[in-house]
Structures are given as C-alpha cells and as structure tokens.
Design a binder for these strands. Sequence first.
DNA 1: TATAAAAACGTCCAATTTTGTCGCATTGAT
DNA 2: ATCAATGCGACAAAATTGGACGTTTTTATA
Lengths: 330, 330
Amino acid sequence: MESLLRYFDMLCLIPKAPNSISTPEILEKLQNMRYAVDLRTVQRDLVKLSASPLFPIANTENTKPLRWFWIDNSSPMQLPMMSTDEALTFKLAEMFLEPLLPPSVRGRLTGYFDLADKRLKESKFEHWIEKVGVVPNNLPLLPAEIEPSVLAVVYEALLKSLRFKATYQAVNKSPKTYEINPLGLVFRHNSIYLVATIFDYTDVKQLALHRFKDAELSDRVVLVPTDFVLNDYITQGSFSYPVDNHLEEITLKLKVNVFLKQVLLETPLCAKQKISDIDEKHYLLEAIVTNTEQLHWWLRSFGTGIEVLEPLELRQAFALEVKALSKMYC
Amino acid sequence: MESLLRYFDMLCLIPKAPNSISTPEILEKLQNMRYAVDLRTVQRDLVKLSASPLFPIANTENTKPLRWFWIDNSSPMQLPMMSTDEALTFKLAEMFLEPLLPPSVRGRLTGYFDLADKRLKESKFEHWIEKVGVVPNNLPLLPAEIEPSVLAVVYEALLKSLRFKATYQAVNKSPKTYEINPLGLVFRHNSIYLVATIFDYTDVKQLALHRFKDAELSDRVVLVPTDFVLNDYITQGSFSYPVDNHLEEITLKLKVNVFLKQVLLETPLCAKQKISDIDEKHYLLEAIVTNTEQLHWWLRSFGTGIEVLEPLELRQAFALEVKALSKMYC
DNA sequence: TATAAAAACGTCCAATTTTGTCGCATTGAT
DNA sequence: ATCAATGCGACAAAATTGGACGTTTTTATA
C-alpha cells in the first residue's frame, strides 16, 4: 500500500512534455515526503510505470541523469472520473468560449474538452450535441490569433515576474525588438492586451498580443512602477471604457417594450430592479446601475425598444445623438 | 505492478458521491477486464484504499452489499498534474463564464477552478490574479438562478432520453405539474430554455429552466416529433432572433470612425473584410456577414460611430428607425 | 417464519513481489 | 586522466499479496 502511494506521488512529480525531471530529483523530493527509498528503487519504478500504456511517461534516453516527462497530447486521466454532468458542462463552456478566446488560449483546455467528449461517448450519450444549442446575444467577431509560442512566454513571464525580449509590430509600422517589462494581461473584445513598460521607460503601454511576432524570456526581474495596480489602471479609463473617467451609480428609468420587459424579468439589470406598467405595450423599468460605456451600447442596441427617461443628462445625450443620426441618414 | 493497474481501474469504477457501486459489481467489472481476482481481494483492496487520505472513498456501512463512492466535492486529482498554463487558462475561463452561466451550471466546474487555484498557489504564483483583468464588451445582466436539483434532472433526462415530471410556474400564473418530454436545451441571453413537448401533445414549447420549481425523472422514453431537429428549430426563428425568419448573407458597407476601425482591424467581422479610407476621420468597411438581429444590435450600439451605407434596405430600415427615435426624444 | 444464498470479515500460509545491496559499465566534469 | 554520479543486471532477504477456508450477518424467497 505504501508503494501504491509512492507511485502516485512519483507520477505527480513528473511534469508534462516540454518540461522534465531527473531521477535524482525525484528521489530527493520523495525523500522529503518521508519515503525512505533507494535510488535504485526509483529507477526500477519509473521503468515499470512507463512500461504500462496507462502511464504514457518516457525519458530522454541519451542524457545521463535520465529526465522523465509525460508524453503529451494525451488527455489527462483523473480520479474520480469526470461525471456526465461535468462533461456536459465542459462542452457548454467550450461553446461559450469559442467566440471569446483566441484558439491558442482555448487550445490549452482541449485536453479537458476531449476528456469530456470521451466521457460522453463511452457513456453512450453521443447524441447530446444535437440536444444543445447556444443563441449568442452579441455579434461574434473573429478573435485575433496569437502566436502560441508568444503566449507561452507571456504567461511564463507574468507568472514568474520576469521580463522578456520580443518583436512587436505596431499598426502600419515595421517590427521592432524591445525588452518588455510585463505588468498585466487585459482581455477586451476578444483581444488580449499586455499592459507593460518598455526597456527602462516608466510610461505604461498597451500591447496587443497578436501583434507580437516572437518572444523570448529574459532573466531580468520585472520592475513594477510605484503605485501601479492593474485594476486601478483599467478603471481609470485607460481602456477608454468607463464614461467620463469615473464610475458613477445612476438610477435608470426606462420605457421598454414587451420583448425587453420579458428579457429583463429573466435576467435583471440589478438585484433590486422594478418593472411596472405604463400602458398596454410599454413598461417602466427602474434600476440602479453603473454608468459605463457598455450600458450605453446596450441601451442603443435596442433602438426604438428603449426610451431613456432618466437620468436627464443621459436622456439629453441620447436626444443629441439621435439628432446627429437624423442628419446622417437624412 | 499488475495490482497497481487493478487499483487504478478499481478507483475509476467508483463514481462520485450521489452515485455508488457495490462490491460484487466491482468484482464483476474487474473480471470483465481480465483481472482474475477473488471477491475477498476486492474487499481488502477497497478497505486499504479508503484508509488512505489520498483516496477519499467510503462505503454505506449499513447496507449489506456495501456500496462505494467518492466522498465530498473535493477537487479531482489528475495525472499528469495541471500545468500552470492550464491553471491560468482555467481561471480566465472562469472570469469569462462568470456573467454567462448561471451559478448552478458553473458550479459543476468549481472542482476544476479550485484545482487551478491550488496549482497556482503551490507554484508560488499567487499574485497572478492581480495581473489579469477582463473588460467586458457587453453589459453583464444577472443570470437567472436555476434550482440545482432541477438542473440535475434535466441533464439526466436529456442524456438518457427520458421524460420527467416537473412543476412549472409560467409568468403571472400559478405553478402546475406536467410530464415533460425534453428535446433540447438552448442558451439565450444568460437564460436556459428547455425545448420540449408536454404530456402527449405535439406542439413544441420553450420552458425557462429557472421557472421550474422541482423535477423528478420518469421512466418513460422521450418521443421525438418526426423531423424535429433542434438546430433547425432554432434557425427557423423560434427564438425570434434571425431576421425575417431566414438567414441571408449580405454585403455590408459601413462608414465607421477611428475607434471602430481599430476594433475591426483586430477582431474582424469576417475573414475577407476590407477597410479603406474615406476621409481623415472616417473609413469604409466592407464585409460579408449574415443578416441577423444580433448584427442589427451591434450596428445600433455604436450610435453615430457607424453609418450603414449598404445594403440599401438596411440603410432604409435604419433611417426609419432614426425617424421614430427622433419623435421619441422630440 | 424458516431456509438458502450472498456478502463481509478474520486468519493462515504459500507464492509473489518488492527492495536494498553489490558489482560493473558508461558518462560528464574537473 | 580521474572521480563522482548514474544506469542497470543479479541476488537474496523482507514484505506484501492473494487464495482458501471458516464464521457471522444480512437479504431474498418460499
């Protein structure tokens, strides 16, 4: 029994394909875990485990301290097994993430999605896919593709707080190589932006990940500008979203049609939202929300389905906009 | 070694907490897998495994064929271990799914999100969360909550093609109990709809999952109406989304401002999209897209930022709408 | 209620597996 | 060239495993 646990811990110590661990390292870690074992035993165990098709591990045959790793692209095995509930939810998540995440990011989860597929298949629930549909409520734009190797370096640099060297091609410019001092990642309409400083300058820049041509990790540590907090940086309007550079709670009063009344009954704007009748076809909606650019987009998107009553400033802003639109379309 | 594999397969046979498997059943399945073992061995092994804190499995102590299951909702263990890349991607997925999936649905993945957290923590990458942000491009509405037990029954009914009995409360009506003949699930603005027929009627209904009070699986098999295909049902406009009840490819010509030009350069409307200059501040965008209600929402949401030039019918529709809006806001 | 079958559990003991040790070959660094 | 580290084969001692059998408890059936 003791040995079973040791096998398990040993398998946990072995990393996935690009990485590896040497036999002596495994021995050391096992001994730290209070396993009194010999190096010879570890060697034998590894050979035994790798012989089984259940554990696709292999070693670098030409190096002398042999290095062990899991042969990749195999979906992970897990205990307890993925339930059909979970499997189905994974497939739903995949459908939702499809238009949101660039393939290279989503690709890091394919092992799990495959596992879910396998699970549903072996349970003879193959026909589930014909029974599920998603009707998106926003226009699916094509996510910009990111060079997978760039993504890997950026991830690692952020996690380990290290700088990296990269070639970046700004719009309509020729590619240039910089040393990037990464501060954070921001996802914004299907694109990923790296918030960073460059070389030893102190001004914070936004760099679209899909415009990097290549990247290579450096060993210099990241220098965070004093008082820099990513969340503050975002809400300060650096991504030009919040209205008037500050977030304000407003009491919204809208006149909405039947369709929107129905939508908002099911998915409210806020927890304390109120809906009352105005006439047969129109309803008064009251809710407290933050006044963001997203709110404005949402309000505009329904056209004549929504009339903004209050706050007055918002109504006036919409009135002005409608005038401008009238001129546009004559 | 043989025994290690048997232990592994045995652990795979044991289901998660609400479900269970009896010792003789395990024996039978193991023998089907060509393990020549004695019942006594299986019993001993199960006791040994459950003694280890690594494998939180337990049995029902009062029944006589003992039934085994994995205890609690602890996060699954997996081999090979989740890489930090995967862990980070899981956390990103969680951020994206937060406003999209109702908690009871998302809840089925918390084990994995927790695992990702654990992984990031033990790798000393605890500060990653301060380094990642999401700027949503649509207004987050509150997803309607669904009774978890209802969701479980609906999932199971759909997977196993069984009917279920449920109490449903339509808007402004008192709850009633029906026998539901489920055909499919559709996700639509953060709500989940069950497409189904009721009793032995043949008309297809849409039932919001969050309006079910309770549900109980029946043993009657689902009867699919002849020619019913969920995807056709959706695209036929049953969810009132596609324009004019049919999907049409149109060549869109838009006059857009700098902001939108930038957005569309990064996340195009379609693969063959063209952008050219009109004047210093405006750009001509040409793309082939399907003419859906979502497209109209998207076009409207930018207000004066977009002027629809072609197709002419669309321009005229927008012109009419602007006139109506003018009247609304005087 | 009686009876039989099934399952759990304790124990013994032989067969098997595991593991430490030693010796030797190979590799890489100093 | 030399030394330390590693891999690997062999062997024997130690530990574990797993079948056999018996007893007790529970469940199903007549």
